[in-house]
């Protein structure tokens, strides 16, 4: 699932790739071509991360300022040529402990999703077209957390500006899937490492709905950048959610066998 890691990872593929990419961006003419070229480069730089295992804390806040915490572990597997695979195991709240969510992300069709319910000791498939809904009552929807794939959007470079102290491209992206909950997103991608710094989400009526900020980026394996904190603020409801990565390990040796219906039941 929960390639919540994914959007964080824009990598740097080394000097060669970088120079190639930059030259392709330079060649691009229209704002649309430039936007697409940047998106491709963003994807390219994160290529090859393999698999990860991480522990994550989600802090939910309502307009009253009350907080609630969810804890979960995430396993993710990079899939070439399609969306990635993800597995989320819930640890808190206690009454959903051990519940596990398996997600096969797809580029051109609806994701495949299963949920293992330990209280029932059964795996249930769930309809996943509704990817626009909130994840665990938070301000994140699945689609915010799903793996980034270039084909999911159309692009247009709007301008350049400094955000979080980084010179960034500001790109308007429009989802190609009509089941998306958004009419568009405005994305700030820094020019130094092709990391997403900020995203503004516009709802279906084209009003600004949420802003996601990527904070405390760290580099892993000398290559892959991950934001330690993803902070989502809903401007309409004044609710917010922070997604905080407590630990992350790369290349722990996960394979397809760890991401199937049977593997769900083996989890603890």
């Amino acid at each position: 699932m929960l390639k919540q890691i994914k959007p964080l990872q824009w990598l740097n593929l080394g000097l060669l790739c970088t120079s190639l990419a930059i030259s392709s961006i330079a060649i691009a003419q229209t704002p649309e071509e430039k936007g697409l070229a940047i998106a491709k480069e963003r994807k390219l730089r994160d290529k090859g991360w393999g698999d990860t295992e991480s522990a994550t804390k989600m802090v939910l806040r309502n307009a009253e300022g009350e907080e609630s915490i969810r804890k979960m572990r995430l396993k993710a597997l990079e899939v070439q040529g399609d969306g990635d695979k993800g597995l989320t195991i819930f640890d808190e709240p206690r009454d959903v402990k051990g519940t596990a969510f398996l997600n096969f992300s797809h580029i051109h069709e609806a994701d495949d999703q299963w949920l293992y319910l330990p209280a029932l000791k059964r795996v249930k498939r769930i309809s996943s077209r509704n990817k626009s809904g909130p994840f665990m009552g938070s301000e994140f929807s699945y689609e915010d957390l799903a793996s980034f794939e270039v084909e999911k959007y159309t692009y247009k470079l709007l301008r350049e500006e400094v955000v979080h102290g980084e010179n960034s491209w500001v790109i308007e992206t429009i989802p190609t899937d009509k089941f998306s909950g958004y009419s568009k997103q405005i994305i700030w991608i820094d020019q130094s490492e092709y990391r997403v710094q900020k995203i503004d989400f516009y709802d279906r009526k084209k009003s600004l709905m949420k802003t996601l900020s990527f904070l405390n980026y760290r580099q892993y394996l000398n290559k892959y950048w991950r934001a330690n904190t993803m902070s989502m603020v809903n401007h309409q409801t004044n609710k917010s959610t922070d997604l905080i990565t407590e630990s992350v390990e790369f290349r722990v040796g996960l394979s397809d066998n760890d991401f199937n219906k049977n593997s769900l039941k083996r989890l603890r």
Binding site: L60, P93, D95, L115, I126, R204
Partner: peptide, 30 residues
């Protein structure tokens, strides 16, 4: 059982689309 109820609810919540969630009926920490 409580865990059964919690897991049914979690599953249901994960299946609801944008705008049709249960946030109008349930608070943050349930």
């Amino acid at each position: 059982q409580q865990d059964l109820a919690a897991q049914f609810l979690l599953m249901y919540e994960m299946s609801l689309p944008y705008g049709l969630d249960l946030n109008n009926q349930i608070n943050l920490d349930k």
